[in-house]
Amino acid sequence: MSFWLLLTVNSITFGGLLFLLSAGFSLIFGLMRIPNLTHGSMFMVGAYLGSTFLSGALGFTSDFWVAAILSAIEVAVLGAVMERLLLRRLAGQPLAQVLVTLGVSLMVADLCLMGWGGDPISVATPEGLGGFVRAGPAVFPLYRVAVIGIAVVFAVVLWLMLDRTRLGAKIRAGVDDPQMARVVGIRVSQLFTIVFGLGAGLAGFAGMIGAPILSVYPGLDQDMLPLALVVVILGGTGSLLGSFVGSILIGFIYNFGQALLPELAYFVLFLPMVIVLVVRPQGLFGGQIL
């Protein structure tokens, strides 16, 4: 009984991490009409940078949360710079843009291997969250519950941002119809940079938040990117609600798959994707931004 409960909590936790990763991926896709194949790299770089801040290798030792925010900002800047320097040059050529993000992701993976070596780096659970929560017969790691809380907070903040702010209105207009957004005077190119940076920052933040659970290792990018792809194919591109529901679904399928069919865990992910593609190719919530 407690095994299943624990598995459920783990699934939701993983779903929360996936949401932080895929929300940005989905927004970038919705706005720029390209899958950002560096998104897994952003996740991994966020985790590596955060672990470095924590380790004190830079001459100071930072708190876990400070490290997470710092690495998120750095990754956001990296994303924005890449958008400005490379993707901007290829405006209107989606295929070329996708291939450039692919090329950059290969370079980043190798640079990380060069910088942080091939051994996995484990990241300690932040202070105060190392304990356990008791709920009846079950015992949950406190940190995993905290990650769920963080994901929910981010979901609400993103929703409010998209629904209530000027920036959100511009993004929604851009996702709906980029041409029209341009006509009504929205600087779409600036919006691209902001959203790209925001999405990258979220991915970097997710990487650090996930590090105490997943640790950091070469290939983390390649483990995470397909999950983000599957979430977005399931939920529908450009849809925040879709990434939320898709993330939780994939969180469950992935964790239960790993527990029940460890050898085929990755393959099990494939089934919901195929079903959605056959029945509803635009994804569960395709066409709905919020």
Partner: peptide, 8 residues
């Protein structure tokens, strides 16, 4: 790294 760079 080279592969990615050539790609770009």
């Amino acid at each position: 790294f080279m592969l990615g760079a050539i790609f770009v």
